[in-house]
Amino acid sequence: MSDQQEHQAAFDLGAYLRRIGWEGGRRADLATLRGVHLAHALSFPFENLDAVSGTAPSLAPGDLMAKLVRSRRGGYCYEQNTLLRLALEALGFTVSGLAGRVVLGTGSPESRPRTHMMLRVEVPGEPRPYLADVGFGAVGALLTPMPLVLGAESEGGGRRHRLTRLPHEGPLELWLLEAHDPRTAEWTGQYAFTLEPYTGQDFQVFNWYVATHPRSPFTRRPYLQRTTPDRHLSLDGTRFVQTGADGTVTEREITDEEEVRRLVGEEFGITVPEGIALLG
């Protein structure tokens, strides 16, 4: 049995679709891709609690099923996009992994390593592949996939995105995903990437580094995100931020361990495992 066959054997498509509440079609078409992507994005919170505890989360299909599907936890990009890839391949799509440099918060893509995982999805009957990504922990994250076309703009789940290209010195074109900010009417870069495919072994290395390196921001403080149909929630250390669909932002500081654990349970739907101290 090949690695892919073993992975699919450990993955339960029915349980996954029940977890995200998807009752639509199971054909490998654009409607299914869009529907499953959005349902996933609205069902799983982004969270780094394993990394906060000093553990690199497993990317094995059985472990992803146990954590995200059966235990109703969340995860970060490697977990969530690996899980989505398993689902899409089970539905009949052809999927490959992509790696990007997060540019949000910096003016130079070269200042950060390629640590973000995304997916390139081939849709039968469609002339262009699609960019899919359910694991970007930011208010500008994709909620629905978008065609990999220069200058393409898409709107899904109330968010707008476009793809442009950046100057580059390498042999491969450098793409940039931008999100539209409704407060300023400006476009903000999210991450830069090439179309070079990356394998599961590549993401295993990235995952270990991000979850265990002492300089990784994910090892220093809790970082959680959740998107609902009418708002986006973020917990970055002690800072809790709510962003409305119109871009309205409210925030407050939380400095009590009991209060932050209660908030994580009520707002993000996660029961914090014993032994993990959120506030140090």
Rank of each mutant, 00 (worst) to 15 (best):
R226M: 06
F240W: 06
S234T: 11
R252T: 12
E251F: 03
T250S: 15
E266V: 09
D230C: 09
L263I: 06
E251W: 12
E251G: 12
V264D: 02
E259A: 11
T243L: 04
R262H: 13
R221I: 10
Q242V: 14
T255M: 09
T271G: 08
R221E: 15
V241Q: 02
R221W: 12
L224W: 08
H232D: 11
E257R: 10
L263D: 02
R231Q: 01
L235S: 00
T271A: 14
G247K: 02
T227S: 11
E259N: 06
L263V: 07
T243V: 14
L233Y: 05
V241S: 07
T250C: 09
L263M: 03
T243E: 08
T228A: 03
F268I: 04
E266W: 04
E253M: 14
Y223D: 06
E266K: 10
V260Y: 01
I254V: 15
G244M: 07
G269C: 00
R252P: 10
P222E: 13
P222I: 08
F268C: 01
G244L: 07
L235W: 05
E259H: 05
D230V: 08
L235Y: 04
Q225P: 05
F240A: 06
T228Y: 02
R226H: 05
T248K: 15
T250V: 12
T248L: 13
T227W: 12
T243P: 04
V249T: 07
V241M: 06
L224P: 08
G244T: 07
E251L: 09
Q225D: 13
T238P: 04
A245W: 05
L235G: 06
D230K: 05
V260N: 00
R239A: 14
R226E: 02
A245Q: 00
T250P: 05
L263A: 01
D256A: 14
R252G: 12
E258W: 09
T255H: 12
D256T: 06
G237S: 09
D230G: 12
T271M: 10
R252M: 15
L224N: 13
I254P: 11
E257C: 07
T271I: 08
E258K: 13
F268W: 03
Q242I: 03
A245M: 11
G265S: 06
E266I: 10
R231W: 02
D246S: 14
R262W: 13
S234H: 07
R226I: 00
G237M: 05
D256N: 15
G244V: 10
S234Q: 14
L235I: 01
I270T: 01
T255L: 10
